[in-house]
């Protein structure tokens, strides 16, 4: 933890060297997901509901997914840009240091500009709440926190998978976009609107639905089973296979050195 906070302060100092550029990029990040929001907005000018979800409910869903994605991107950026860490030899440096690789990769990049996106998610979140009529209680606040935590862990896990695959190939990884950018983009709507099949995949294989659809149902009182509230924590188990894959990747790296 001490090492990580040291990394944190170094990144913070570095960013402060370029204040203007940092500020502008952060503003850029704030505006960048706006087109997605406008897409939703315009769609709901035409349609009242989709699969029984109203505009404000969709907004709530989108903002929570966006927020957890931005958190994961902010702290797990090292994994997201891992191909460059491998290709510029930075990973060799990591290997000759007596610390866990995961910690060092996490420390290699902290993207403070993502604060912009987090803020945007926050604005939409507040807007969504003010438009919806969720009856708030302690359980629901906890649910929201679980959703964000679970989502952040889940997205970090996916970034780790991406990084682990970089050990084997760096050119064929575009398909991982489905799970990173794609999950962020398509996570804007509750997963049930994509049909049963997609919902099953997102429940049992890549547990997006556990951090999004089921707890959302609990949040808007469409399903009062309290189990739904804890499902985002179950989704965190996903990180284990990701970690295993990462270990396999390192083993491969040690035998090929590429």
């Amino acid at each position: 933890m001490r090492v990580y906070s040291r990394y944190f302060s170094i990144h913070f100092k570095s960013v402060m060297q370029y204040k203007t550029s940092f500020l502008l990029t952060t503003i850029g990040q704030f505006l960048v997901s706006f087109n997605v929001f406008l897409g939703i907005y315009f769609m709901f000018m035409r349609f009242n509901k989709v699969e029984g979800f109203t505009y404000s409910e969709v907004l709530l869903c989108f903002s929570i997914v966006l927020m957890s994605y931005s958190f994961a991107e902010c702290f797990g950026r090292g994994f997201d840009t891992f191909s460059s860490i491998i290709s510029n030899g930075e990973f060799d440096r990591i290997m000759v240091r007596p610390r866990g690789e995961i910690l060092q990769v996490l420390g290699s990049k902290i993207e403070f500009t993502r604060i912009g996106r987090i803020l945007q998610a926050l604005v939409m979140f507040i807007y969504g709440i003010s438009q919806s009529n969720v009856s708030w209680n302690f359980d629901k606040i906890l649910t929201i926190i679980f959703m964000i935590v679970g989502g952040t862990v889940l997205f970090t896990g996916i970034f780790i998978i991406y990084a682990a695959l970089c050990f084997f190939t760096i050119e064929g990884l575009e398909f991982m976009n489905i799970f990173t950018d794609g999950a962020r983009e398509y996570g804007k709507y509750p997963i049930s609107i994509y049909g049963k099949r997609v919902l099953q995949i997102c429940t049992f294989i890549v547990p997006f639905a556990l951090i999004q659809y089921y707890p959302l149902l609990f949040l808007i009182d469409r399903n009062r089973n309290r189990w739904n509230m804890f499902l985002p924590l179950v989704a965190c188990i996903f990180i284990i296979p990701c970690y295993k894959l990462w270990k396999i990747g390192i083993k491969h790296y040690k035998s090929t050195g590429s």
Partner: peptide, 24 residues
């Protein structure tokens, strides 16, 4: 990889519009 990605991307996109089509 790009082909697979874009195919899935397209499918998801169509599923979204299908849901709206069903709605109204």
């Amino acid at each position: 990889a790009g082909i697979v990605t874009q195919f899935i991307w397209g499918a998801m996109e169509i599923l979204v519009f299908r849901a709206f089509y069903k709605a109204d």
